[in-house]
């Protein structure tokens, strides 16, 4: 199948597309071929389920298991959707670090005629796939085990599809910006992507309503498209039963979609320019292929 795809005329002609597909395939091999499929499945399921169960237990200890309250669905879905933020935003940065430090293949890669921008995007796709699998399993687990009020009849599918497409593109663009910044850093045991993903966990209101943040901190979350994406995805999944909170009470779905669209386009443009600048700067400073053993 892989070979057939590579032989398609469109793929053969377009270097960026060939790079993107090859990178996505390579990323998937790296993510998945370290273990047998069963072990990989356990690994992909255990982490997100454990992560969401921490919140479920915290919630249940205090409320005596009142999982039918709207705040429960808000927390649960926010945490489930956040899986994609962690995977995509930090994934691209880790690609840069692992190519440079772990596999030490960055010199070989960049002496080939690949398109660097789409190479990083492709590597991010593999992480995205793992994230999507985890998201589906986590939401399914929530519906079965905790009766999350999600029904196929009440989900706003159009809103959900548009929101997810824009949301994923915005996350990929943000991840790409972080990956570009990572090119210009060395000796990092963490990644810049992890830092931003960690900040988004707090400032996007992923697991609590933004109203709780002090008013001086609230605008930080409103800068990031992920905040609007999370709100829209919750609205789409929970349908008419969704109970919102103060911060977005005055925003209609179309308002939020427009903000998400504009923010996504801006981030995409920023990611292209940041990559070009970082690529040249990293080569000038020598950070591009610097092995520091960290």
């Amino acid at each position: 199948m892989y070979q057939t795809m590579m032989n398609l005329p469109l793929v053969r002609r377009a270097n960026w597309l060939r790079t993107f597909l090859n990178a996505a395939w390579l990323g998937w091999q790296i993510e998945s071929n370290w273990a047998d499929p069963f072990l990989f499945a356990v690994y992909s399921i255990a982490r997100p389920i454990a992560s969401v169960l921490i919140l479920v237990v915290m919630y249940s200890v205090i409320t005596n298991g009142a999982t039918d309250q709207p705040i429960f669905a808000y927390i649960y879905l926010g945490n489930a959707l956040y899986i994609l933020v962690g995977q995509v935003v930090s994934g691209v940065s880790w690609t840069v670090i692992s190519d440079r430090e772990q596999y030490r293949t960055v010199r070989q890669l960049y002496t080939t005629p690949l398109d660097g921008y789409f190479y990083l995007m492709g590597r991010g796709v593999a992480r995205l796939l793992v994230g999507i699998i985890s998201l589906v399993i986590t939401v399914g687990f929530g519906v079965l085990a905790f009766q999350l009020p999600i029904s196929l009849q009440t989900v706003d599918w159009l809103l959900f599809t548009v929101t997810m497409v824009l949301g994923i593109i915005s996350l990929a663009a943000l991840g790409h910006v972080m990956g570009s910044i990572t090119m210009m850093t060395a000796r990092q045991i963490g990644s810049v992507g992890d830092a931003v993903a960690g900040a988004l966990y707090l400032f996007s209101g992923a697991i609590f309503p933004l109203d709780l943040l002090p008013s001086v901190l609230r605008p930080i979350g409103l800068i990031f498209p992920a905040t609007y994406w999370l709100e829209l995805a919750r609205r789409a999944l929970l349908g008419p039963g969704y109970v919102g909170f103060e911060t977005f009470a005055g925003f209609s779905n179309s308002h939020l979609l427009l903000i998400l669209l504009v923010a996504t386009l801006l981030l995409l443009v920023a990611s292209i320019y940041t990559y070009r600048w970082a690529f040249n700067r990293a080569r000038e400073t020598g950070f591009f292929d610097m092995e520091t053993n960290f």
């Binding site: 915290m58 919630y59 409320t63 927390i75 960690g198 900040a199 697991i207 709780l212």
Partner: peptide, 15 residues
Amino acid sequence: LSTVSYIYVYQAINA
């Protein structure tokens, strides 16, 4: 940052 997020969860449910 992540610790503070969990604290806000408890505050959201009046723990």
